[in-house]
Simulated scan of single mutants.
Amino acid sequence: MSVKLKYQGVLDLGETLGIQNGNVEEVDGVLKVSGVAGTPHEKNLIWDKIKEAGGELPSDIEAHIEVADDSVYHRHTVASGDTLGKIAKQYYGKAGKYTAIFEANTNILKNPDVIHPGQELVIPNL
């Protein structure tokens, strides 16, 4: 199996996320990828996908992923059925961290129990 084929899921995710200035080349059996992710969360998603395909310390891929906006962890557009707890669980692994999201968005949120589809929330760095 070619290295590029092995990491095709990484390349597909990069395309889905809209990684900017992406570059991919295979040199001597090592896949070299680079680009600019929008947020730290997107960069983490890429690294998680790399580890999923190649293990914890893969030697057949070199990735240089920069981040365009590291002032926030991510920006999340509220979907129907979302709650701050559910969003906190998605990004931080703990629903109880919803208060950090609420505090970062008091400019548009007045009550942590009331969010609406279409609102764009800042997911702060913790």
Rank of each mutant, 00 (worst) to 15 (best):
H116T: 14
T77K: 14
E25N: 10
M1H: 12
L5R: 15
N105F: 09
G118N: 13
K94Q: 15
G35C: 01
H41E: 15
K94T: 08
D69R: 04
A95L: 02
D28G: 04
V36G: 00
Y7C: 05
G38E: 07
M1T: 13
A37T: 02
G96K: 09
V30A: 05
A63C: 01
G118Q: 05
T77P: 00
Y7Q: 14
I50Y: 03
Y91T: 05
P124L: 15
A53H: 10
K49E: 15
K86P: 01
K4S: 09
S34R: 06
D69Y: 12
V78A: 09
E103D: 04
K6D: 02
H116C: 02
V78L: 06
K110V: 11
L17G: 02
H116I: 06
L84I: 08
Y7L: 11
G9R: 07
L11F: 04
K89W: 11
T77I: 13
S59T: 13
H76D: 12
L45C: 11
D60F: 11
L84P: 03
V72Y: 12
S2G: 11
A53W: 01
L11Y: 03
D48W: 01
L57R: 10
A68D: 14
G35Y: 00
I19F: 05
S71P: 02
V67D: 09
E26G: 07
A63E: 04
L109N: 02
V72M: 12
T39N: 10
G9M: 06
Y7F: 14
D69V: 08
N23E: 14
Q119A: 02
I65P: 03
G85L: 01
A88W: 02
E25W: 07
V67L: 12
V78P: 01
A100V: 03
E52C: 02
V27H: 09
D69T: 04
A63V: 11
D82G: 00
G9N: 11
H76E: 12
K43I: 05
G118I: 14
K94S: 14
S80Q: 11
K6Y: 03
K51C: 08
K43H: 07
N105K: 11
I46A: 02
G85Y: 07
N21D: 15
D48Q: 09
K86Q: 11
I108E: 06
I65T: 13
I115T: 00
G14N: 07
L109T: 03
